[in-house]
Amino acid sequence: MKDIAKLIIVLTIICAVSGSLMALVNDMTKDLIREANERAKLEAMKSVLPEFDNNPVEDAKVISANGKDWTFFVAKQKSQFVGAAFASTSHKGYSGDIHVMIGVTAENKILAIEILTPHKETPGLGAKITGYDFRRKFIGKDINENETKWAVAKDGGDIDQISAATISSRAVVEAVKQGLDIFIANEDEIKK
């Protein structure tokens, strides 16, 4: 009996100390972690937008579609719409979700895309989607489906896939197309 009491007390004390220690560190770091995540997203957003003089985060428009909220960061120059940036997600990555930040200009052309971290694609293969060699294939493409076939070349589309990484390429194209569909459907609202 005394033996069992000792076991329980020791284990309880160790767990309690561990728990409080983790709570302390969590308290110290949670704001920093949130800031770091926000900063990474903001940087990705800036890199896909044309030059602007407003605050795209303040002017962002939130649109509910497909059961979730899409945030469109709107870039303006002298109060004129010059571009929008938005994040889209594909669940068809080779291992896990792929988040893509897409930038569209006022002329409805893709300005740039950026693959958001973290993604879990195979290093050296699928992870090549983050490289400029792949991302540049999207630049300048018209978002209208009559102009650009949003699929990888293997499926008869206009985007060349990365060899040996078709699944990852396909997922990025899917994410872009999904986002663009929402953008096109709400174009007037976003460009207002």
């Binding site: 220690l21 560190v25 969590n26 110290m28």
Partner: peptide, 10 residues
């Protein structure tokens, strides 16, 4: 867990 949180923050 502590390493994970510190690394994520810094």
């Amino acid at each position: 867990t502590i390493v994970d949180m510190l690394m994520n923050a810094f």
